[in-house]
């Protein structure tokens, strides 16, 4: 694992017995690439293979995403983040002010894009 000082560290817990789980990890990676200003690592953990981690990290639902920001803030999100809207809401919670400003325009664009998709 590289230093977390300069990038987001994401851990996604999925249950591979659930049909949508691979889809979720794939789409999350795409979303991160598009929206996160700094580099990131995404670790995907299959709970079926590592049940001990469930206990250690006290996971009660899938998918769960643990995010460690470059400022070492920790966030946990439960539920499917891959709907663009929920990802934006979620990332808004852990992006710091500097990033926020940087991303504001990006996000605005995203929302416009998102909206235009359904028009």
């Amino acid at each position: 694992m590289s230093s977390i000082d300069d990038h987001y560290h994401l851990v996604l817990y999925i249950d591979t017995a659930k049909p949508r789980s691979f889809d979720i990890s794939h789409r999350l990676r795409q979303l991160c690439k598009r929206h996160l200003s700094k580099s990131f690592t995404l670790e995907v953990i299959d709970l079926r293979k590592e049940p001990a981690l469930l206990e250690q990290r006290r996971i009660i639902a899938v998918p769960t995403l643990d995010v460690t920001t470059p400022q070492s803030q920790k966030h946990r999100f439960v539920g499917d983040l891959t709907a663009s809207k929920s990802f934006i809401v979620a990332t808004g919670m852990f992006l710091n002010a500097e990033n926020m400003q940087q991303n504001a325009t990006k996000m605005k664009q995203n929302i416009i894009n998102y909206k235009s998709k359904f028009k």
Partner: peptide, 16 residues
């Protein structure tokens, strides 16, 4: 600290 952002599944409870 958890934020619920979307649909989820509780299978980890049974799993644990």
């Amino acid at each position: 600290d958890e934020t619920v952002v979307g649909e989820y599944d509780l299978s980890p409870i049974l799993l644990r």
